[in-house]
Amino acid sequence: MTSLRTVLPAGAASRSILRAAATGLYLSITVLAFFAVAAIVPGLLATHSPTALDLSHSLEGPSWQHWFGTDESGRDLYSRVVYGTRESLAIGIGATAVSISIALVLGSIAALARRFVAGAVNRVIEILFAFPTLLLALLLVAVLGPSAMTQIVAVGIGTAPGYARIIRGQILSAKDSGYVEAAVALGHSRRRILGAHIVPNAVRPLVAIITLSIGQSIVWASSLAFLGLGVAPPASEWGALLDAGRTYITQAWWLIVIPGLVIVTLALAATTLGKHIQNILEKGEK
C-alpha cells in the first residue's frame, strides 16, 4: 500500500440528521396527544373553570396562579385554551373532511369524465383556485352568517381547489401507468381497474395531505375568527380568543400572543407528522 485515500464517510452526519428527524416525530406525536386529551377530557388538564369570572384578577399577566394570565373578566386563559381545543380541532377536522370530499369528487371527475365534462370541471377548479382562500371563505361567511358550521364549510370549500388539483394529478398518473395498461391487456373491466388500481394508488398520498390539512384549516378558521367572523364570544375557540384579545392588545399582550402560539404549535405538530407519514409512504414506494 503506497497510498490510502479516504473520503470522510457520510454515515456519521446522516445518522445525526436521522435522529433529529425522529425527535421531531416523537415531539409532534406528544403535542398532538396532549391536544387530543384536551379535546376529549378538558377537565383533566384545566386548572380553572373556563367561564368563572373573577373581576378582581382581570387582565393579569402569566403567573403561577394563572399560567397564561387572565382576560378582561378575570377568566383563566390557560383553561379557556384547553376548553377551546375541542371546538378548534372539530373545525380543523371538519373543514378537512369537507375539503377532501369536495376535492375527491371534483378531482375524479376532472380526471376520469369525458372530455367535455372534465374540461368544464377543470375550469371550475381553476376559477376557484384563482380566488385567495381567505377571500372565498369570507364570501361564504358573509352569505351564511358566522357560526362554527359556517367556518367548517367556508374553510372546507376555500381549501378544496388545491387538493382537487392534487387528486386529479394522482388519478391521471395512475391512469397512464404501466400497471393499468397491463390490467387492460388482461381484459379486466373498467370498474375493476378503477377499484383495484386507480383509486387506491391515487388516494395513497392523501393520508399525508389530510394531516397537513388539519393544521392548515385551524389556521384559516382562526383567521376568520380573528376578523370577527367566527364563533360567538362566550365560546373559547382559539380564533375567537384571538379576536377577543385584539381589543386589549396594548395592555395585555398574552391574550393574543399565547393563543397565537398555541395555534402555531398545533399546526406545526400536525405538519411535522404529515411530512413524516409522507416520507414513510414514499419510501414504501421505492
Partner: peptide, 22 residues
C-alpha cells in the same frame, strides 16, 4: 373484446412499472 383478451398477453421491457406497487 374483453372476452378474447385472455387469448393474447404481453410482456414489457420494464416489468416493474407494469406491476401495481401496492
Amino acid at each position: 373484446r374483453r372476452r378474447l383478451r385472455s387469448r393474447i398477453s404481453v410482456v414489457y421491457q420494464d416489468p416493474l412499472s407494469s406491476f401495481d406497487p401496492r
